[in-house]
Design a binder for these strands. Structure first.
Lengths: 126, 126
DNA sequence: CTTGACATTGACATTGGCGTCAAGCCGTAC
DNA sequence: GTACGGCTTGACGCCAATGTCAATGTCAAG
């Protein structure tokens, strides 16, 4: 299939597919016209990438998963590098949540100080 | 005082101060040389901005606080607009935390599936 | 006079994942 | 032949908050 069909089937823009290719996440054969040609495995690959991006992974984070799939595994997370990324991302997410929570506490404290009753009123209203 | 001293005392770069000025967050008198001249109230203002930035506010978020201080209030959050920003930021932070939490759950589920025992082992180790 | 520390403005680089043109080639249908 | 849609590459825009030149001006000390 060509880039338009792959984009359609994977639910991404053609722009994104070319971007992924430029980042080395995707490779495409070319036909006589120079048009990119993809097969079913490329579709799976793009779907893997999208699934990871939607849970907050970066493209770089997704790289080991892509390489794992390319190596012939049926899932991208069948390789130790991918599992390591899972664990690292979990830690990152936890750190972010802690940071956000601290900020929340500080802002809530400021709000309470600036406008006593505001926070309490929130709880009663919502 | 001039820009270098203000930067030093507020703990920011001179580059940042000029940027704040370009964004309309800070105004400076100029002496005969064209050099920016600041007073103590400007220092307070910059400190207010920094305090807000460090809890995750954007410069735009900080604008009502700056205007509140300029209006003669002794704290930046003495005005309703500032309080409104507090409330909005609280809601934003809560939304972010919820999103991160959902992601965390999904990643944890994937990790468990890809490597049963990994998550449990984390709890035992740490 | 020169050096050096400070000041000025302006503009480009960074990070990420694209959207959105722009200009042109390819192929098919009419 | 021409119109249309899909493909190609390339490049700029966006968001935030600076960092980092670059080229030049100012001022006090030696």
């Amino acid at each position: 299939m060509r880039i338009g069909e792959l984009a359609e089937r994977a639910g991404v823009s053609t722009r994104s597919l070319r971007y992924y290719e430029k980042q080395g996440m995707l490779t495409a054969r070319r036909d006589a016209n120079g048009y990119r040609v993809y097969d079913e495995s490329d579709l799976e690959l793009v779907r893997e990438i999208r699934a990871l991006l939607t849970v907050g992974f970066t493209l770089e984070d997704a790289r080991p998963f892509v390489e794992c799939l390319r190596a012939g595994n049926d899932t991208g997370d069948a390789c130790p590098d991918s599992v390591a990324v899972y664990r690292r991302k979990l830690a990152e997410i936890d750190a972010e949540i802690r940071l956000l929570w601290q900020r929340r506490q500080r802002v809530a404290a400021q709000l309470t100080r600036a406008c006593p009753g505001c926070v309490l009123r929130d709880f009663r209203e919502g």
